[in-house]
Amino acid sequence: MANSSKPKVAVWKFASCDGCQLSLLDCEDELLAITQEIKIANFPEASRAVIKGPYDLSLVEGSITTPHDMTRIQEIRRLSKVLITIGACATSGGIQALRNFKDINEFISIVYASPEFISTLDKSTPISTHVKVDFELRGCPINKMQLVEVISAFLSNRKPNTPEHSTCVECKRKGTVCVMVGKGTMCLGPVTHAGCDALCPTYNRGCYGCFGPKENPNTDSLAKWLISNGKTSDEMVRAFRSFNAGSDAFCKESQVNEEKD
């Protein structure tokens, strides 16, 4: 592909830990092939060279937590033909969405020596709350093979293969013995979006829900079952209030259990 016709790709960061965008650099074996097919136009983690927009594809990491970011995302959307969010922060507000359940001013007064310099929003929100998002890639962090798949799909003008079914399907296809049924381990797999290749259950841990809710998640039934098997409402609040605490389904379930507690 001639250099000039390569799609221009920009990577943007909002409130996040950088882990998702670093997944791009983690694509060691595929990285060379990726850079052959796309032109990295803006990616501060990889290069200081910045090419001006517009961009064919913007990969957006992080959530919106400040008034400044609220305006910045509008500008990025304006400059991007296709905008794809990467990771739990950009897709559901991230772990920082825990602030959504408390009074932000209390945090500011406790954490910062000079709170008057802090300009922040009372909620951490996903990118889709602010602008139109063309595709959301889930995960905390994202799965680098899914990122390669999404970029490949973008380049071939096809739908990416990132199924929205439960993590259980991945466990079963791998032959992993169900940790919940087999050991009584608390596991969010049955309500969690696939994508990590069932990483935790493969290593005998319950799913932590890093990829957020699956399509049609019945968190109510799962929580009730877990509670009837000895877990507490408080444990449910903590389970649903992690990296995807801001997602509708997990947020609602954590609130229901908080009221019970």
Partner: peptide, 12 residues
């Protein structure tokens, strides 16, 4: 109300 539509039954 109880079904998780997780697909485990069909997989096993």
């Amino acid at each position: 109300g109880r079904c998780l539509s997780c697909a485990n039954c069909t997989m096993v």
